[in-house]
Amino acid sequence: MQALPQDTDYFAVLGLPPHPGLDGVDLDRRYYELSRKLHPDRYQTRPIEEQRASVQATALLNAAHRTLRDVEARGRYWLVRSGDSLARENQSVPPRLAAYVFDVQEKLADVRASVNGSASALRSELVETQRELTERLDRQRAMLADMLRGWPAENLAAGASPTPDERRPAALRELKNVLSELSYLRTLDRDLQNALEA
């Protein structure tokens, strides 16, 4: 087995300008077009080296499409591409969520400690909390999508010297915050789900 090409840029794979907003881009159409060209089914009757290359290229194309089509995956990818990343074991509560998280966790603790009598009232409260959380997740994703759409453009003009945009480091910090909040909210959602199913 061959190694995949290292550090291949997902935007480049799909032939797109490197901007996380993907404004006006029909990502799916682009993906289908390339699939038609690269897919192993097209290479069944070709030499084995071409077949292998086709598998590698399509795997990369699939990964690029899967990552870019989802706003959160795309945000994370953009962060990594910009030389940063969310720490894998990042368990500390994002500051802006502290009050909310405390509130939800208290409710969870109540349910865990409850005896049968009060359980059903607490349960319906938990269901309501989960509904609220789902809305919050949706809002957070919408916020992320907006942020990526308005991302300061890189200076790509040929021959121009790259002029670091003043706003970019701040934007990157904010992207990281929004992503880690999103990740934390999802963990919370899973905890709620588990508590409801228990």
Binding site: L4, P40, V55, Q56, A59, L60, N62, A63, R66
Partner: peptide, 9 residues
């Protein structure tokens, strides 16, 4: 439900 061919490292 990842589309194949697929690779991960």
């Amino acid at each position: 439900n990842t589309t194949i061919p697929a690779a991960a490292r």
